[in-house]
């Protein structure tokens, strides 16, 4: 069942982003972090020292836990809007 709340807003038609090569559906206006969360892809990286799984946490660009690679650049997924064809790489291993 979707986490998206349906009765308050009309979202633009879905676009497809790819996450580690896998297509994920998302709506323009959503952040990459929220889109992945809604798609059940919560594990975004491993912590550098203990190798423990991590996912989005603060959602306001402070904690840096949701850093992914987009366009060759490290970005916080929560501050990055989705767009058609956006390629996201998770698992920033360092």
């Amino acid at each position: 069942m979707s986490l998206r709340i349906g009765h308050t807003v009309d979202r633009p038609g879905a676009v497809t982003i790819t996450v580690d090569g896998t297509p994920v559906s998302a709506h323009p206006g959503e952040s990459v972090a929220a889109a992945l969360f809604a798609a059940g892809r919560r594990r975004l990286r491993e912590s550098p020292r203990a190798g423990a799984p991590r996912g989005m946490f603060c959602l306001m660009g402070a904690c840096q836990e949701c850093v992914v690679i987009v366009g060759g650049r490290r970005v916080p997924a929560c501050q990055t809007p989705v767009s058609e064809g956006l390629a996201v790489t998770t698992g920033v291993p360092w």
Partner: peptide, 9 residues
């Protein structure tokens, strides 16, 4: 753990 988020989040 992934899935534990802030209340503000």
């Amino acid at each position: 753990l992934p899935g534990v988020i802030g209340l503000a989040a």
